[in-house]
């Protein structure tokens, strides 16, 4: 049953004031006031100082790295996430349930553990690194290393947003396409893929947003070379360690604004999905 729009005072259920009041109080205390404090702090900076902090070459290089590689990582996850979701929903194979459960590993594994594990595997003496090194590919302590970590951290998003949509696809639609003469690839491109786009975009946006802010899994594998492999969250960390609170706040505010824009985008995408599902 769906919830009718009940006016708060007309509902016979108790606890409206208590639960809503407590929720708002806790939300303000833990989330809103601290975040507002950060914005207020940045407002105490003069404009030239703010600009100097957020647009110095080293910081700009970090934006390029963080946003560029998050984008690439998101695209990798888009493609392979689609394949993984397809395989997990449509096919049967040995160990499928275990594989399905392990997809969530990047959510459950602490980022520091992921960071040192990826570094161990992809560094010079690691299981993969030792094969890449003779080929002239330096995986750990390079931009490729950052990309590996950012791909890892965003991996579950596309798979998990796609799975329910793929499960709900009706076989009849594909059968109809086939009986009208479409081959399998045409059916996939013209019938299945259009249904998946909103979920694919949502998964991509979520993976991208997570990767942009990621810290723990990247700092071990990246080598943290200024101008080359230094991500934006690390810039904030470095400024803090140098007691440059104003600079750290300024860069943080830029990142926060971008993250909120991304959150808004995800919300709009999800509304779009729901509307499509209803129509």
């Amino acid at each position: 049953m769906t919830l009718p729009f009940v006016r708060p005072n007309s509902s016979p259920l108790p606890g409206y004031r208590l639960t809503l009041g407590y929720s708002l109080f806790y939300l303000c205390l833990i989330i809103l006031i601290p975040l507002a404090g950060t914005f207020l702090k940045s407002a105490t900076l003069t404009w030239p100082k703010f600009w100097e902090a957020v647009a110095s070459p080293r910081v700009v290089a970090s934006y390029e790295l963080s946003f560029g590689l998050s984008l690439v990582g998101g695209l990798i996850n888009l493609l392979f996430g689609l394949i993984a979701a397809w395989v997990l929903v449509r096919y049967e194979f040995f160990g499928k349930n275990i594989v399905d459960a392990l997809v969530d590993l990047p959510f459950a594994l602490p980022t520091a553990v992921a960071g040192i594990a990826l570094t161990a595997v992809y560094s010079k003496n690691g299981w993969f690194g030792r094969w890449l090194e003779p080929l002239g590919i330096k995986a750990a302590y390079s931009r490729l290393g950052v990309l590996i970590a950012l791909t890892f951290i965003g991996l579950p998003f596309v798979v998990r947003t796609l799975q329910p949509i793929l499960e709900d696809l009706e076989a009849e639609v594909e059968e109809a396409a086939a009986s009208l003469g479409a081959n399998r690839w045409q059916t996939f491109r013209r019938v299945i893929l259009p249904e998946l786009w909103p979920a694919l975009l949502t998964g991509f946006a979520l993976a991208f947003a997570r990767a942009v802010g990621e810290y723990g899994s990247v700092v071990f594998i990246s080598g943290n070379m200024p101008m080359r492999t230094e991500i934006t969250p690390l810039i904030i960390m470095t400024k803090l360690e140098q007691y440059d609170y104003a600079g750290a706040t300024a860069v943080a505010v830029v990142m926060l604004l971008i993250s909120f824009a991304l959150l808004l985008l995800v919300n709009l995408l999800q509304r779009w999905i729901q509307q499509r599902a209803c129509s």
Partner: peptide
């Protein structure tokens, strides 16, 4: 219950997921 601003509240609850962990620490330092 039904009340105005509900979807805004849901969005605000999700806010910490959109914030970089480093910034989540920074806000308390500030």
């Amino acid at each position: 219950f039904g009340f105005p601003g509900k979807s805004l509240l849901i969005t605000l609850i999700d806010l910490p997921f959109a914030v970089s962990p480093v910034i989540s620490g920074l806000v308390f330092v500030l």
